[in-house]
């Protein structure tokens, strides 16, 4: 993938990214995820856990999407990585990325961060979905122009979603999605599942609309 002008992140290898920080352009990252840096860079713990002032902070606290973040400022380059997980850079050009807060390694300060109530999508099934995937009831959204570095266990593939061709994902392998996508939990339960002889694929996330979903090569949570 050719680096876009809005992208501050560069993948060094499959598990490390390098961010370029220039004055006036902030990068947010998970606290403690810095591995090395060059230049004159400062790291400030971000008590609010991101952007948006006090109300947003409270929102995240309530939603349990308050992963400790830090603000990275100055001029130089910073390398990020965490826990030996694979890192994938996702570039956004105006659309919205939905990702779990604890999978978010770092993101551009130009992106607008928010918290989304999953129950808004898919009603009751949305709530059940959150419980099943271990995601809880809320997820983090990032919107605007810029890029985000997302962590996953094992590499990530991007599966495009086009209208009329929904994509089904194992809830445990789901990492993130972007675009105008509706998602719902579909249950393919038959008598086999009831007697404990299921195929292990009883629950699936069905994503439809247009956009893309990121899937990791593992059924393990971070």
């Amino acid at each position: 993938m050719a680096p876009m002008p809005t992208t501050a992140f560069r993948e060094i290898n499959s598990k490390m990214v390098e961010a370029t920080v220039v004055p006036g352009r902030v990068v947010y990252s998970q606290r403690g995820a810095m591995l090395a840096y060059r230049g004159d860079v400062t790291f400030t713990p971000n008590i609010q856990g991101g952007q948006g002032g006090l109300a947003s902070m409270l929102g995240r606290r309530v939603a349990n999407e308050a992963t400790p973040l830090m603000t990275v400022e100055g001029s130089g380059t910073v390398m990020f990585g965490h826990g030996g997980h694979h890192v994938h850079v996702i570039a956004l050009s105006g659309d919205t990325l939905y990702v779990e807060a604890d999978r978010l390694l770092a993101f551009d300060g130009t992106l607008r961060q928010g918290t989304v109530f999953l129950g808004e999508q898919g009603g009751v099934m949305g709530l059940v979905r959150g419980q099943f995937t271990g995601q809880g009831l809320f997820t983090t959204s990032l919107q605007g122009h810029g890029s985000a570095a997302v962590m996953a266990h094992g590499g990530v593939i991007e599966v495009p979603i086009t209208p009329g061709r929904p994509v089904h994902v194992d809830p445990q392998a789901y990492v993130a999605h972007h675009g105008d996508v509706r998602n719902k939990l579909s249950a393919a339960l038959g008598w086999r599942e009831m007697v404990g002889r299921g195929s292990g694929e009883g629950f699936q996330l069905e994503l439809s609309g247009s956009g893309a979903v990121y899937v990791q090569a593992s059924e393990k949570k971070l």
Partner: peptide, 30 residues
């Protein structure tokens, strides 16, 4: 680390629970 299998109405045998994603129509049977 990811195997993509393209199918056109035929079938494959796979380790239980190893599907991570699919598009199109798929049925899983143990």
């Amino acid at each position: 680390r990811m195997l993509a299998v393209e199918m056109a109405g035929d079938s494959v045998k796979a380790k239980n629970g190893s599907m991570v994603a699919y598009d199109g129509r798929m049925a899983f049977k143990r």
